[in-house]
Design a protein around this nucleic acid. Structure first.
Length: 212
DNA sequence: TTATAGATTGCCT
DNA sequence: GGCAATCTATAAT
């Protein structure tokens, strides 16, 4: 079964707030050897680069955040709280350093692989949203489920067909999202610019990490 | 069901 | 030295 092509770079070369709305419902795809692990993106946060006090890019370029200052459509993966990785996709051009933090996935393929990566053994007979939610609902969880870390994945081009980490359009065989509306809410876990509503999520989707 | 504390390390001042 | 774009277990209600 052929996979759809990754979204093109110009999809990301826009204001992060505009990209955020359209990224919801798209599929984050991970190749793990011969296996495909995939999840539907149901929650993201926009970071407005150099103009956004909550963004890593706000204080200027450092070794840690340099990917943010590069071209759009690349993975910015960082390590935080001494134990978690988080993944962003860079937006805009090389001048503004905007990005989108991926906060939650609805698993669509590779449940067993996600469970193993999360050390939550997957039992097919016991499949229910409450259990599935533990796989990739949250920025640290989704990186763990897809085995995404800074060492291997920071800077990867998610628009390249041969990439083991890419974003593709919704898969035909997956039920549609028409019943979910995009809503905005405040971002999670930040102290600066905490009032800005730059979190975008699918209202009512059970895989969102924090309800609006 | 909600609230709180502790884990644990790399980055930047 | 301080703290972080988080998660989990445990306690309290």
């Amino acid at each position: 079964m052929p996979l759809p092509p990754p979204l093109p770079r110009n999809f990301y070369e826009r204001d992060p707030r505009a990209v955020a709305r359209e990224l919801l419902g798209k599929i984050l795809l991970r190749r793990m050897g011969r296996k495909i692990v995939a999840g539907r993106i149901v929650e993201v946060e926009a970071y407005m680069g150099k103009n956004d006090p909550a963004a890593h890019a706000f204080a200027g370029m450092t070794n840690r955040n340099s990917v943010l200052f590069g071209p759009a459509g690349h993975a910015y993966v960082y390590f935080t709280y001494g134990m978690h990785h988080c993944m962003n996709i860079t937006c805009e051009g090389t001048d503004r350093a905007g990005s989108l933090l991926l906060r939650a996935l609805e698993p669509v393929a590779g449940f067993r692989e996600m469970g193993e990566a999360r050390k939550l053994p997957w039992d097919k007979e016991d499949a229910n949203p409450a259990k599935l939610r533990l796989l990739a609902s949250g920025p640290g969880r989704l990186c763990q489920a897809l085995r995404i870390d800074r060492q291997h994945d920071n800077g990867k081009d998610v628009t390249a067909r041969d990439s083991d980490l890419q974003v593709v359009d919704a898969l035909k065989e997956v039920p549609t999202l028409e019943k979910y509306k995009v809503v905005t809410a405040t971002r999670i876990g930040i102290t600066k610019a905490a009032e800005m509503k730059l979190r975008y999520l699918l209202a009512g989707n059970p895989y969102v990490s924090v309800k609006a």
